[in-house]
Write a protein that binds this DNA or RNA. Sequence first.
DNA 1: TTGTAGGCGTTATCAC
DNA 2: GTGATAACGCCTACAA
Lengths: 325, 325
Amino acid sequence: MTTIREIAKIAGVSVATVSRVLNDHPYVSQEKKAAVSHAVEKLNYSRNIKAIQLSNKHSNLVGIILPKIDLPYFSKIVEGLAEEARNLHLQLVLIQSNYDTEKEREALELLRGHLMDGIIFCSRAISLSEVRAYQEFGPIILLEDTDQDDFYSISIPHDHAFTYGLDYLYSKGHKKIAIALNRIDGTNSKKRIQAYESMMERIKEPIRTEWIFDQCLSIEDGATLMDKYMALNDKPTAFLTTNDQIAAGVLLAAAKHQLKIPQDLAVLSFDNQEISKVMDLSTISIPIKEMGQLAMRALFNSRENSLQASKKRELPFKLIERLTV
Amino acid sequence: MTTIREIAKIAGVSVATVSRVLNDHPYVSQEKKAAVSHAVEKLNYSRNIKAIQLSNKHSNLVGIILPKIDLPYFSKIVEGLAEEARNLHLQLVLIQSNYDTEKEREALELLRGHLMDGIIFCSRAISLSEVRAYQEFGPIILLEDTDQDDFYSISIPHDHAFTYGLDYLYSKGHKKIAIALNRIDGTNSKKRIQAYESMMERIKEPIRTEWIFDQCLSIEDGATLMDKYMALNDKPTAFLTTNDQIAAGVLLAAAKHQLKIPQDLAVLSFDNQEISKVMDLSTISIPIKEMGQLAMRALFNSRENSLQASKKRELPFKLIERLTV
DNA sequence: TTGTAGGCGTTATCAC
DNA sequence: GTGATAACGCCTACAA
């Protein structure tokens, strides 16, 4: 392996000069610069990034933690992250946790071990109190609607958004509303359930726990949800689902049961992903990709002015009226 | 930052011994081992991975190159990669190229710079002759149906699979078949077009270039495809699409045009992703996730016995008959 | 503008 | 079993 020293020897300069040329430092004469470049060409030299990382402060690697990349919501976030990372010359280390706290802990240990400059939690299972202990090792960003104000977080206000969706359904004449959530114990879900309960209270409806569906994520989950709906004696007139995939599954399964949407059953979802457009699904749009972009930029900026924790970024959401409500 | 030296000092041993303890080497007395462990606890020490990487041969980082993570095919591959990487204690560096050759080149340079131990191309735009030059810097795996036998590749045989699909449509009475491809100049697409042309020749049908649709990837592309279909004077009776999303888009748009599937138009796709199940889409199943798993394992194994290039792994495909043909 | 020398933190060789 | 010490390859004061 050819090193900076050999280049220096060939070019007849010191290693410091070679390093300067390689890093485009000022104060290098044209002649020496040319000599170095020439030697680099000649020996087909390229720098050892591992060595650079060791002597530098940063590694330019950012850890991305998510449960499963094969879910449109998360791959969309990562797309935003990757796009921005490209401009900032950062690389993404993708860590798929499956909500295994052990795996998430490992990832935090990588931050502690200086492999990565920072970490972005797209979602998590590990407790914030445990995460907190790692903040001293680098910036950590949460893409969730947290109230812990010592974390930097980016999210839409899920309580408002959920209430907004429920109000919309109510304004369309629905009082009997069921909801489909992802993980019932996730930060966002808690906010949503709160919103749901206070809404039901407000319109004087009982809270039917059997109308709160958990573990809904995919199109197939949506289809399964429809089965559960059919088995219900007391049926809701509307569904509010936390992503478009669930709603799409509901719609497809509903068609098989000859249900008319929205007459027999109204469906409102979140995300505004591609599939919602094609299926004319009413949905509440979330700037998913932008969340990724903002997160990456915030992480990058934190190098200069260290991450302002207690900075909670709230992003806007928007109702997209289509044909399922 | 506390280092191995401080631990050594506190524990009253040499750095070598500390290193041995940290790496579970044999030949360390219980006493010293305990002393070191104690010091590690006391100082809340953790190893610097960047330093480990520098002095080690491997970085345990693997570069994953793909055009766009937000496409089900690719996120499924990555899921497989990540799952296997976890067992092997490797980390994924995700590089989203958007088929920009410059970005792909950068990724190869990262391999050259020893940041990553190897690279997996999920798909690429850069020429193989250019990629070839980087093989000396580490194992490179291609997830495509290449004929270049100096590369390690994993794929289904796309020509056979495509022919198989066409034959199936033919056996169902279809001679007028249109096809929807991803990138017309991709390795896999070339094989598919060949298969298409020879099939048409075989059944004595003209090759209608206006029935070969390019740049089809997403559900929306599928919907757009339907528009193009409607505008056609001479209409095909069947579509063979290279992924389920396109077919799903076709189906959804067809419903709006009151087209009966499969009577008016048959649709066969590839992948057998979740959406195909819910939509009762006939499809040719591809072991996408397994491709990722195999690739990661092959890369890992190549550390021991260096990657056997000219090893082409052909995976099986399988027709799933549902309701759209 | 240039060069020397020390440092980044760990691993591994070799002698004891 | 253990400990010096030399790599690993680069960056960067500091001195000139």
